[in-house]
Design a protein around this nucleic acid. Structure first.
Length: 263
DNA sequence: ATGACATATGAGATATGA
C-alpha cells in the first residue's frame, strides 16, 4: 500500500499535474492540501476517471483539504473541532484493510502564522494545541493511524536551509512551534521519513522565487506521521522532487509530494 | 525596505503563501 501527502497549491490550476502524478506513482491513499476551491468545485469526475474517490473539506479561494483513495472511506471528521474560524484544514477518513484492519487517515493544512508579530502566529500555536488535544481524544497510539500534511514547521535544524543562528525568531523555526510539533510525537506519532533517514538534509518545499528550487534552498515541512502499527510496516519513504519540477507547460506546486510504501 | 513567483478574486490591484 502506498500512502502520500501533497500540498498542491490550487487544485484547479494543478489538476492535470496531479493526474499525471497519480498515473505515474499509483498511490492508494493521498492527502491533498491547499485546494483553494469549494466542495462544489471539486473535480470528482476527473478523479473517478483516474480510479479515485475523494473526501473533501473545501472553502472558497483558500485552504481546503481532501483525501483521495481507491475505495471510498468513511469520513469520521471534517474540520478541527472548535477551530472552524481558521479555515478548512482537516479531514479524516477510515477504511477496513487486509493489513491493518481499521486504518485511519487524517490530512491537515496547518496555519502559516505569517510572522511572529501577527495575530495569526498566536492563533497558529493555539491551532496546534487544538490538533494535539483532538488527536489524543480521537486516536490511540495503539491503533493504525496516519496524520499527514503541510505542518508549516521545521522541526529541527536539519529541516531548513537557514543556518541555526538565523532561525531563533524566524517563523516556522521557533521553539514554540517546535514544541507544538514535538507534542504530536509525544502522542505516539512518528515522522516516518526522519525515522528512516535520521541524518538526511532533504526538503519538501522551495520558494518559487529566486531560483530557490535549483539552488536547493528549501524547508522540510510536509510530513507523514504514523502510529507504531503503521510505522513498522514502512518499507520506503520518498520525497518526490521530480514533481516539484515543471512538466512541459504545467507549473509545479511549490511543495513536492511525499509518499511511503507499506508492506 | 521592497520584491521576487504563483494562485485566487474579480475584472485591477490586492491578499495570501512560507
Amino acid at each position: 500500500m502506498r500512502i502520500a501527502t501533497w500540498n498542491v497549491n490550487g487544485l484547479r490550476a494543478r489538476l492535470d499535474f496531479v493526474l499525471h502524478w497519480l498515473q505515474s506513482r499509483q498511490p492508494d491513499i493521498v492527502g491533498l492540501q491547499e485546494l483553494k476551491l469549494t466542495d462544489e468545485q471539486f473535480p470528482h469526475d476527473a478523479f473517478e476517471a483516474a480510479g479515485y474517490q475523494a473526501a473533501v473539506h473545501g472553502q472558497k479561494a483558500w485552504n481546503g483539504v481532501a483525501i483521495l483513495s481507491r475505495q471510498a472511506g468513511e469520513v469520521t471528521q471534517r474540520g478541527l473541532p472548535g477551530e472552524d474560524d481558521f479555515g478548512s484544514r482537516l479531514v479524516t477518513a477510515q477504511w477496513t484493510t487486509p493489513q491493518f484492519g481499521e486504518l485511519s487517515f487524517t490530512t491537515v493544512y496547518c496555519p502559516n502564522g505569517k510572522n511572529l508579530e501577527h495575530d495569526d502566529y498566536s492563533k497558529k500555536l493555539t491551532w496546534f494545541d487544538s490538533l494535539a488535544a483532538h488527536w489524543a481524544s480521537a486516536h490511540s497510539s495503539e491503533e493504525p493511524a496516519v496524520l499527514c500534511g503541510d505542518f508549516n514547521i521545521c522541526p529541527t535544524e536539519l529541516d531548513s536551509h537557514h543556518p541555526p543562528e538565523e532561525t531563533i525568531d524566524r517563523i516556522f523555526h521557533t521553539a514554540e512551534e517546535r514544541q507544538r510539533f514535538e507534542s504530536l510525537l509525544d502522542r505516539g506519532l512518528i515522522d516516518i521519513y526522519r525515522r528512516r533517514n535520521p541524518d538526511e538534509r532533504v526538503y519538501s518545499w522551495w520558494d518559487y522565487r529566486d531560483g530557490s528550487f535549483h539552488r536547493n534552498l528549501g524547508l522540510r515541512i510536509d510530513f507523514l506521521l504514523a502510529t507504531k502499527g503503521v510505522t513498522e510496516r514502512v518499507v520506503d519513504v520518498v520525497i518526490d522532487r521530480d514533481y516539484r519540477k515543471k512538466q512541459d507547460d504545467l507549473t509545479a506546486s511549490d511543495h513536492a509530494p511525499v509518499y511511503a510504501d507499506l508492506e
